[in-house]
Simulated scan of single mutants.
Amino acid sequence: MMALVNPTTSALQQMQAMANEATIPESLDSSASASSATSPGSFTELLQQSLAKVSASQASATGEMHAFELGASSVSLNSAMIDGAKAGILFQQSLQIRNRLVSAYTDIMQTQL
């Protein structure tokens, strides 16, 4: 007889397997310092890094589009459009994360003790 699989347990096991695959051994990560190897970055640091990445992507895309508009031969329309689309996707992703955080905060604040 075949055993039933609990979907929650199965999903948790898959997430743990993906997390294990995503970790980089310290011997391969030459930029890891002793303090960051012992504790992961705080949520605030991760959020700031993510927002900085979005901002840099938008600035790069804007600069590339401006250079294309001015007729720079080193910038093609394809690369400018792709970089603009990537920046838009990163912005939408950060907006969705923000919306989910606000929703979670609202849910927590409405919880009665």
Results as ranks from 00 to 15, higher is better:
K53R: 06
S74A: 13
V102I: 06
S50V: 01
T62P: 03
L77M: 13
S31A: 11
I108W: 09
T23D: 08
A11G: 03
S73D: 05
S35Q: 13
S76R: 00
G88D: 14
T106V: 14
H66Q: 12
T8P: 00
A85V: 06
L51W: 12
L47Q: 08
P25W: 09
G63M: 00
L47E: 12
I97G: 09
G88L: 03
R100N: 12
F91H: 10
T23V: 07
P25R: 01
L95W: 08
S39L: 05
Q49Y: 12
A34F: 15
T8M: 12
K53D: 15
Q93S: 09
A59D: 05
L113H: 13
L101S: 07
V75Y: 04
A104D: 14
L12Y: 11
I108P: 04
L77I: 02
M81S: 10
F91S: 11
R98Q: 15
R100Y: 12
A11W: 11
R98N: 14
Q14V: 05
S27V: 05
Q48A: 06
D29W: 10
A34R: 02
Q48C: 01
S55Y: 05
A17V: 01
F43G: 01
Q48R: 04
L51M: 08
S30M: 12
T106R: 10
E26C: 05
P7A: 01
M65T: 06
L46A: 14
R98P: 07
A52C: 02
S36P: 07
L12D: 13
S74M: 07
L46D: 14
M2P: 09
Q48D: 10
Q13T: 11
L4G: 09
M109N: 07
Q112G: 13
I89F: 07
A34W: 10
V75H: 06
L12I: 13
S50C: 02
M2H: 14
F91G: 05
A85D: 13
A104I: 08
K86A: 12
T111F: 12
S60E: 11
L95A: 01
G84D: 05
S33L: 05
D83R: 03
T8K: 08
